Simulated assay, not measured.
Amino acid sequence: MTTPHLLPAHELERTSVVANNTMNRERGLAGVNSYARELGLDPVARLMARSATPSWLDLCSGKGHALREARPHLPAGAVLTGVDLVGPLVPAPTPAADLAPAPVPAPVPALATPGPELLTASVAHWSPDRTYDLITCVHGLHYVGDQLGLLTRAASWLAPGGLLIAHLDPASLRWADGAPAGRAAVAALRAAGFRYSARHHRISLDGPRAVRLPFRYLGADPAAGPNYTGQPAVGSHYAAAHVAASVPPQ
């Protein structure tokens, strides 16, 4: 078996597979191409059942359509944060040169309810300064080098009783020589408290905890090819390490 050429995060994020502007760009909150369908739950209903001032962190959020659509249905104190490597990419409108200038509109009062905070950053390095009731990553892990590392970090970002849910393709998890590591990784995640649905390729976790998995990240292969979605994805490579599985919250 040929050992693939593995890239560190800063090189991986410059490849066309990862630094694309199409992944998760148009997915909305509800409907056919939606978060509700992909996650198997209604994010707004989940948030409203959690707290009077709920909070939602969406990793690899694309244009942030789902967060924007959720905002009017949530109380004014709700916190909505989206993080994406490429960012929302919403250009300012440019008037045509041959059109007369538009009339200056009357001042609009500031909105009592602010929109979501959309951050352009690498999820491999970014971390929040607060916890969240809901953390989602809709098909975003397919483009992250250290997928297991992001899951373990995100586990500590949950508020008490919060939910982390993401898509995970075990076939993309490999040992150093390219041999499959998915079965061992899923077993370790389950031992640490995660749930995994093979049918839906969804990994989830209830409540915060400090998680350590018996894997050491080596690098990623952007030439791994299409995954179960049919789209090119990243192969994440690991070596075995011996660590404790998880530490429940005190």
Rank of each mutant, 00 (worst) to 15 (best):
22 T>W: 15
166 A>D: 03
135 I>S: 09
198 A>R: 07
110 A>V: 10
107 P>W: 10
79 V>F: 05
248 P>S: 08
203 I>Y: 08
144 V>G: 04
198 A>Y: 11
26 E>I: 12
98 D>F: 09
138 V>A: 14
45 A>I: 01
191 A>Q: 08
66 A>I: 01
96 A>F: 05
55 S>H: 09
250 Q>C: 04
28 G>E: 03
154 A>D: 06
90 V>F: 01
115 G>L: 04
7 L>Q: 02
13 E>R: 00
111 L>N: 11
101 P>E: 06
134 L>E: 03
165 I>P: 02
102 A>R: 05
1 M>D: 14
85 L>Q: 02
135 I>N: 05
48 M>H: 12
201 H>K: 12
63 K>S: 15
60 C>W: 00
135 I>K: 05
193 G>M: 02
19 A>E: 06
149 G>Y: 06
97 A>C: 04
133 D>E: 08
91 P>A: 04
221 D>M: 14
47 L>V: 13
89 L>K: 04
101 P>A: 12
12 L>T: 01
202 R>D: 09
155 A>H: 04
74 L>G: 12
217 Y>E: 03
134 L>T: 03
86 V>Q: 10
188 A>S: 06
204 S>P: 02
213 L>Y: 06
90 V>N: 08
200 H>R: 12
54 P>E: 06
73 H>E: 10
182 G>E: 00
25 R>D: 04
224 A>D: 07
50 R>G: 10
20 N>D: 07
213 L>W: 10
161 G>Y: 00
84 D>H: 08
241 A>W: 01
149 G>M: 05
32 V>A: 15
224 A>T: 07
140 G>S: 07
154 A>H: 01
243 V>H: 15
217 Y>G: 06
14 R>E: 14
123 V>G: 08
92 A>N: 14
92 A>I: 14
244 A>R: 04
85 L>R: 00
233 A>K: 01
200 H>S: 08
169 D>F: 13
50 R>S: 15
192 A>I: 00
28 G>V: 09
227 N>V: 04
151 L>R: 02
18 V>Y: 03
116 P>V: 13
66 A>V: 01
236 S>P: 00
27 R>V: 13
126 W>Y: 11
70 A>G: 11
42 D>G: 14
65 H>L: 14
196 Y>N: 06
193 G>N: 03
217 Y>Q: 06
228 Y>S: 13
6 L>E: 13
140 G>F: 11
46 R>G: 12
247 V>Y: 15
244 A>K: 01
82 G>K: 00
164 L>G: 10
